Amino acid sequence: MSPRTSAAPAGLVLAVLAVLAVLAVLAAGCTDPAAERGSPVSVSQPPASPPARSLTAVPPPSPISSSGPKHPFPMATSLAEPMATGAPLAATGPPRFFVSARTPLARFPGKSKTAVLTPVPPAVHNAETGALIANIPLPPGIESSWHLVAAAPDNRMFAIAGWTESTNPRIRFFVVRLGEDGRPGKPVAVTQTDPDDLTLVHDLALSADGTRLAYATPLIGDGAKISVLDVATGRRRDWKTSTHSTVSGLSWAPDGRSLAYVLRGRAIALLDLSRPDVDLDGATSRIIKDATGALPFESVAHTPDGSALIYASGHTVERVPLSGGPAQVLARPELPPDASLSLRFSVDGTGEHLLYVHRWHAYRAALADGTITSVPITVDERPGKGDSPRVAW
């Protein structure tokens, strides 16, 4: 993980959401390096805004002891076929849209210890201008977006994380398809067959054929896991590691037979989904790239032909063949000094365009020549902006 995290407002929001038990892992040192700064929302809200909720803020939980209880549910094995080998949803050209997702907005009126949380929806934006096209409706039971979004290669199907009720908050997933004009269709919640107590998820990835979701989450007590979830049935298969506390940067191979992932920001590995192993530390995985300096890895993406991985070492975007060999530099984004030391990005289905966010600007990198352009991200101003979002295309 990045050694530098976001500052005051982002920390304020996460402190409030400690009520939601999210800070259990953040307090253990797994803060999100991609979290960005934001600004408080105004006290008054127009009638059309999402309803605000009052919650009494409490101190963050104490760090989780390594000798504490393990994950409250057994590892899931009900998904007999975790691979996603259907026909990929084909890219039809440069991306026309991107989707943003952010956490609920929070403010403390006056000196009150009661936080007012305003739910926010995910949103669709024009990829060229950043303009808001439409907010994405939330399925029943999900009250706000969370800061996770993943895209299929066709730039039309997206998977998004949502935040449930405030009294017993959990993270749930849903998928949505965009029309040719970018307008979202009816969202479909993914109902899991096996129970999973999700209060913090590090990453989310949608398979190229749109049939599987992969997500990474810490285990209570120690370790982490990768889960593959069937979108249609909710059946799940888990792989765990007891030697690494953080797994992130998930990316499906185009053929759906493997997953790339990042171990604690220090190594990029490949999980073979065809093997029966359940341990990421065993023969199931192999290391593709080790970090050679202080700069961490965060995101990783497959090239469209599946022969190589695109990743960022710090802010330098590189490409490395899966068969081995030297890395090739694709782009060198110049981020402000207050940016995270690692770069969270999304690569489109053509493999030619990379997208990342700093504050409320989206940056588009052309991987052929490293050219970078930026556009402001426009959102519905009624609930306010808050922390900057995560994006995918």
Rank of each mutant, 00 (worst) to 15 (best):
F73H: 12
G93M: 02
V124T: 06
P40L: 01
A216Q: 02
R177F: 08
P122M: 06
L12E: 09
V317T: 04
S112I: 01
L20N: 11
T233P: 04
A27M: 13
P137V: 03
G351N: 02
R4S: 09
E36G: 15
N155Q: 02
S42M: 08
P88W: 05
D369M: 08
S313Q: 13
P195G: 01
V190L: 07
G256P: 08
K113A: 13
D255Y: 04
R183M: 13
G141I: 11
T241N: 05
I372W: 10
G162F: 00
S342C: 10
A28N: 12
S299P: 00
P33V: 02
T378L: 09
A283L: 10
E180S: 13
A28F: 01
G110A: 03
R364V: 08
I226H: 09
T164H: 07
A327M: 03
A214I: 10
L213H: 01
V41W: 03
A90H: 05
P40Y: 07
H361Y: 14
Q45E: 13
A294I: 14
D255V: 06
P137C: 11
L335P: 00
P104Y: 00
G384F: 01
M83S: 14
V375K: 04
S307K: 14
P376V: 11
S346N: 08
S245N: 15
A362Q: 01
A216R: 01
P74W: 02
L250T: 08
W163C: 08
M157D: 03
T243I: 07
G110S: 05
G325L: 09
L138D: 04
R96P: 01
D338W: 06
T103D: 13
L117T: 11
A294D: 15
E352P: 00
P140H: 02
G293C: 04
P389Y: 03
